[in-house]
Nucleic acid binder design. Structure first.
Length: 289
DNA sequence: GTCCAGGGAATCA
DNA sequence: TGATTCCATGGA
């Protein structure tokens, strides 16, 4: 594969740190020069800001880096309009959007997103990244670029013969069996990822995701929002989102006692079909600041 | 040593 | 339905 380059000229909504460190993805790492290098599908790419432009350099299986980037980075969606709409809701939204104004929600591979967020359960982001890296290094394919070796995220087929013990050895903890069972279910066709991609009914897709081992309400919503299923209306509720929603709107003395349905209801009322975006601005803001 | 992390599943009322 | 408890692991 030959190295390719693509320049994204002066995008309106686009900031590397906001995109890669808002908690939606786990395989992009900051470099010494402030650029980021990451891998998705069989693409290994470095992104560097030059003036107001972004230079993408790397290798791409399809020989069309521009198209891959436009899809993955959701370039053709109007985030300025989304932020404008959300900013009018209240000053909390305005502040959180100001903080994370360069966020774009990536169109990540469905399979990779499912496995990544199963691993995320009761876990922290640095450790999630480490586990995914070891999983890829052990079972993915090598891609050499720029004097380094990168590893693709393993496909279901590449995980076919992996045992629960081998997952445990990667540091997966109690999630080992979940990964094993979900991979098996997908290999056996009990859940057909292609069908999920093509089904416009979000309720049905969510129900199907919930049948997977290790996928509960929060993980299912992260998959719907952060994968190329791209359901921007879903509102994943984790400890941080519960915390920020309680701090701002609910104000219960004990945040751990706040009812999840109450949060869902409030999110729908306030943010409507942009709840997922609102959630991401709030999560990033509360967690970083 | 204790607490916590982008929770889920099993169990019990 | 709703609340409790347990589940590995590693960093703070």
């Amino acid at each position: 594969m030959k190295e390719q380059q693509y320049i994204l000229k002066n995008p309106e909504t686009f900031h590397l740190k906001d995109i890669f460190e808002c908690g939606q993805c786990f395989r992009w790492n900051e470099q010494e020069d402030g650029s980021y290098t990451g891998i998705w599908k069989e693409n290994v790419v470095n992104v560097k800001k030059e003036g107001q432009d972004y230079i993408f350099t790397g290798i791409c299986k399809t020989e069309n880096l521009e198209e891959e980037i436009h899809t993955y980075f959701d370039i053709d969606r109007n985030y300025e309009e989304i932020k404008e709409n959300l900013s009018h809701i209240d000053n909390y939204m305005k502040d959180s959007i100001q903080y994370g104004k360069g966020i774009r929600i990536l169109n990540q591979d469905l399979w990779e997103t499912i496995i990544s967020f199963i691993i995320s359960a009761n876990n922290n982001i640095p450790r999630i990244k480490g586990i995914i890296e070891r999983l890829s290094k052990t079972y993915g394919k090598q891609i050499k670029w720029n004097g380094k070796i990168y590893y693709t995220f393993p496909t279901p087929g590449e995980l076919k013969n992996v045992t629960v013990e081998q997952y445990r050895a990667l540091g997966l903890g109690f999630r080992d069996i979940r990964l094993y069972e979900t991979t098996k279910m997908i290999l056996e066709g009990k859940v057909n990822l292609q069908e999920l991609e093509e089904n416009p009914n979000t309720i049905e897709v969510r129900e199907k995701l919930l049948t997977l081992s290790g996928v509960g309400p929060k993980v299912a919503d992260c998959i719907l929002l952060f994968s190329d299923l791209k359901r921007l209306e879903v509102f994943p509720i984790d400890v941080w989102v519960r915390r920020v929603m309680n701090d701002l709107y609910i104000r219960n003395e004990d945040e751990t006692k706040v009812n999840k349905k109450q949060i869902e209801k409030m999110a729908k009322e306030k943010f409507g079909d942009l709840a997922g975006l609102a959630q991401q601005y709030l999560f990033y803001w509360r967690r970083e600041a």
